[in-house]
């Protein structure tokens, strides 16, 4: 009988070697290991053997049974491995996904400016785009027929209304609305009667800033702007203040940052100047305080205003302001992933 068992094992080994598919394996498994295999028959016959022989044959039969089961498991694992290989995923294929759009670069820059000032404790306010001449000019210490109006040719709507030429009238509105001390920025749209060309647009954006508290000084202005400019443009950039003139600030300053390419030395990209103008600023003029009923002896403040287009042009290296307003997808898609 031991011979028959050995032959049974050899037959099994032979057939197992032929197995290629799971069906083959199931067939072999049924034939050699299941209830319908010859194993139960061998067990039956074992009972008829004399005790001595039964022990030897029984041990062998058990070994063979375990061996067959083990070999079947191995084979199954092997088949599984093979099958997994056939389910190969081509990871170089593009992912299944939705297309993404993009934020507009002007809004990106505006959002970033707002976020920086928010983190510095500034409140965000808005003002109307249709303004009164009074708020836009007189209240800001720019009387009619003043040469300072030359730079701000306005679109008039009649009845003393115009499209605001800067966000500065919001200073007046904010001061009337809030009680000092406060820190506020006002992002918004402005209009000037400039022909549309590479550096001018009749519609543009500004962000106005206003801080009012007792004892505010030029140092406070400088410190705030330095923090802002470095965050927006990068830690390496230098900030330069130089005197200028705005009717609603005194002292007034123009703020420059060092050119990102030459760091202030002068190169072709900054027109050899080394510096790029980013905003106008200054301490709030006492007359402006008087115009809103504040006492300039007791309260001080600083204000600043920057052109968003200009900053976006500097930041992204955009040469023509009109690109912002054309909204060509080829241009807009360059800003994917920002914001």
């Amino acid at each position: 009988m031991i011979e028959e068992i050995e032959e049974y094992l050899r037959d099994f080994e032979g057939e197992l070697a032929q197995v290629l598919t799971r069906d083959d394996l199931n067939r072999v498994k049924g034939k050699y290991a299941g209830r319908k295999s010859r194993i139960p028959l061998f067990l039956e016959r074992l009972k008829t053997l004399p005790l001595e022989e039964r022990r030897v044959v029984g041990r062998r039969l058990n070994e063979v049974k375990v061996l067959i089961e083990e070999r079947l498991r191995e084979k199954e694992a092997e088949l599984s491995r093979k099958e997994r290989k056939r389910e190969f995923v081509d990871l170089s294929l593009p992912g299944r996904r939705h297309p993404l759009g993009a934020f507009h670069p002007l809004r990106l820059v505006m959002d970033e400016i707002v976020a920086i000032f928010r983190s510095l404790g500034f409140r965000v306010e808005e003002g109307p785009e249709v303004e009164t001449e009074f708020y836009n000019f007189e209240a800001l210490n720019i009387p009619a027929d003043h040469p300072a109006r030359d730079a701000q040719d306005s679109f008039y709507l009649g009845g003393g209304f115009l499209l605001r030429t800067h966000t500065s009238p919001a200073q007046i509105r904010v001061m009337k609305k809030l009680t000092p001390p406060f820190r506020v920025i006002v992002p918004g749209r402005c209009y000037r009667r400039d022909a549309f060309d590479a550096t001018h647009s009749p519609v543009f954006h500004q962000v106005e800033g206003l801080v009012v508290a007792p004892g505010i000084s030029m140092g406070d202005l400088k410190g705030t702007i330095e923090v802002f400019a470095r965050r927006l443009f990068g830690e390496k950039r230098k900030v330069r203040f130089r005197p200028s003139y705005f009717p609603f600030t005194e002292p007034s300053a123009e703020v420059d940052i060092s050119c990102g390419i030459c760091q202030g030395v002068g190169c072709r990209s900054c027109g050899g100047q080394g510096w790029l103008e980013i905003m106008g600023a200054g301490l709030v003029h006492p007359q402006v305080f008087r115009n809103v009923g504040y006492d300039p002896e007791k309260i001080q403040g600083f204000a600043f205003g920057m052109g968003v287009e200009r900053i976006a042009m500097l930041k992204f290296g955009i040469p023509d302001i009109r690109w912002f307003f054309e909204n060509d997808v080829a241009f807009l898609s360059a800003f994917k992933g920002l914001g």
């Binding site: 409140r123 000084s217 140092g219 705030t224 923090v227 007034s252």
Partner: peptide, 23 residues
């Protein structure tokens, strides 16, 4: 402003306006 202009804005010492304000 006249004094500051000629003395130099570069010599202004930077500070940061700190006062309690809930934005």
């Amino acid at each position: 402003e006249e004094v500051g202009r000629v003395y130099g804005y570069g010599k202004i010492l930077s500070s940061f306006p700190s006062f309690p304000f809930d934005p």
